[in-house]
Design a protein around this nucleic acid. Sequence first.
DNA 1: CGTTAGCACTCTATTCAAATGAGTGCTAAA
DNA 2: TTTAGCACTCATTTGAATAGAGTGCTAACG
Lengths: 342, 342
Amino acid sequence: MLSERQSMILNAIVDDYIRCAEPVGSRSISKRGDVAFSPATIRNEMADLEELGFLEQPHTSAGRIPSNKGYRYYVDHLAPLKPLKAEDLKLFKQLAAEKLSAVEEVIQHAGTILASMTNYTSILLGPEKFNTSLRHFQLLPLNETTAVAIIVTSTGEVENKTVSIPQGVSASDMEQMANLLNARLAGVPMHRLKARLYSEIGQEIQRHAEHYEELMKLLDDSLARGKDPKVFLSGTTNMLIQPEFKDIGKLKTVLDLLEETPTLMRLLNSEQRGIQVRIGSENVHQAFANCSLITATYSLEGEAFGTIGILGPTRMEYAKVIGTLDLLSRAMSRALAGRYGA
Amino acid sequence: MLSERQSMILNAIVDDYIRCAEPVGSRSISKRGDVAFSPATIRNEMADLEELGFLEQPHTSAGRIPSNKGYRYYVDHLAPLKPLKAEDLKLFKQLAAEKLSAVEEVIQHAGTILASMTNYTSILLGPEKFNTSLRHFQLLPLNETTAVAIIVTSTGEVENKTVSIPQGVSASDMEQMANLLNARLAGVPMHRLKARLYSEIGQEIQRHAEHYEELMKLLDDSLARGKDPKVFLSGTTNMLIQPEFKDIGKLKTVLDLLEETPTLMRLLNSEQRGIQVRIGSENVHQAFANCSLITATYSLEGEAFGTIGILGPTRMEYAKVIGTLDLLSRAMSRALAGRYGA
DNA sequence: CGTTAGCACTCTATTCAAATGAGTGCTAAA
DNA sequence: TTTAGCACTCATTTGAATAGAGTGCTAACG
């Protein structure tokens, strides 16, 4: 699609622009050394590249900046896969080695590393609990009216929920219920719990206990899915140092959106495994028009999957970020593996 | 300490400055109507107030702005306690009425309300678990090497922790241990748990079981205090709209500090109950020199206490914020009461 | 024919002096 | 004691001139 020379020039422009955040002119490219042509020649090529839609010109007498299409070409064909620095690799190893007790801590920690290494904002999605199963259920009365329902999943995560005790249900009723659930539903995938509750436990309760309605309501409440998977943000303030966000208004719009979990979920949502790059307007939300989001997925014992992502300006160090995410997602899978599971 | 007229003028200046964020001059005060003197007279008083340290002048030909001492006087003597708007009160009632299942949700929600009502940043500290006691303990093996320890407190909070199982400890050992702890330590205050573990349970284990060392280590790990109380932030982006933070550098320093839980803890830390106002340099951290922090405490069944706070520029709507915090802290205490507890 | 030097042109950013205007302090009069 | 008047200060705004970076085009060059 592009000639050798055009590719080289596009590459040079994107590189330069990523580094300096300023329109790059023909002269400065010529001087870089890796494109050994005169400014005039480069100018001609640049005019062509602009016509093809890979470059843009803020105004007549400025240099060129890459368009979204330009970035896309850069990412797909040009971005050199930089090897990570040794010190960064060390951080990853530490992550895997560290004695982090909970999945959430591993994720949180990974997010912090990611943000500090890249100087962008990291967004991590906890594992979908879709593929985990029930390990243990408990129903613990606190007083006459409220109880705590505790669910432990096969991956060792603990969810808890305060539920109110229906009239006429006794502590021993609840204990029986919990025992019944553990006996019958242990090992059942989380997303099938409710269905199985009605199909299997329902009859049993109806046979042995009064208060059928009340007990079912209680159990139904208790098993209510522990809301959406958690989102972990880190390095949001790195947005502040990006020159593209010197406009506080736009900055606030973006930061505000980052506080909304549903927006983030929608942003990260994808069926695809592996690494994905969404440049500028490829993102769902209009406010992220000059942002790029790069995501990778990690797995937890091959059962559950989560997403880690980096949000930054479209003028992002793609090569570095992609490499980092790739390695870190593997490191996370490794750190989470073996620690739990059947 | 200040004459009637001086008070009035100081009041007018602080009021105006809080509204407009710009140095206020003698003329504009004279025109306000509530201080019926000529600009010249007011100028004289202003000169006096400056000499006394209540006002400052950015430069010779600008109006005056309040000093920290000025704000302090305003807060202590002048700030009129504004009644809240009806719609705001309604929000509070909703908070109390809502069926929020977990303490943390109540707190989180209160923080959101607080931030959106005041347009400042809210910082809420979860209840100190200091005064809560053990309700239930459980130790649940996940596989050969790891187990989940679950602690339920008297206020219905659930803490969980993944611990590794020492060599030679069996599932039935762990079950016994858990039963023992429940039998002996239920009702014991959280902060005394470890001490009691050694003084009471220790002997028992030594008598009945092998692996004394290992079991004690396991239990000790399991009871490790669930880190610091959680901190909930809301409305951090409200900082962006404050003109005092148009300097992105300072803004970043502050926002970065807000991400550090220990800093926040130190910032909020106080033995005092009730409402506290810390103006500018009265705050621990240098970076908060032009911020004010107003805090109030709430209680959970009279047992545990937490803190809610508002962080904003020193030029803060003290009257409104103090009123809001006062009411909200009560509303929270109410919302949390009755829901749990013995 | 592809490449490059040269040059006129465009447009932004910088600089600097002058004008503006908000606000003060002081003095003298009411 | 209060206030009108006035000279003075100083940040901000304004506008014009200038500098500078970069382009597009044309003509020359190998």
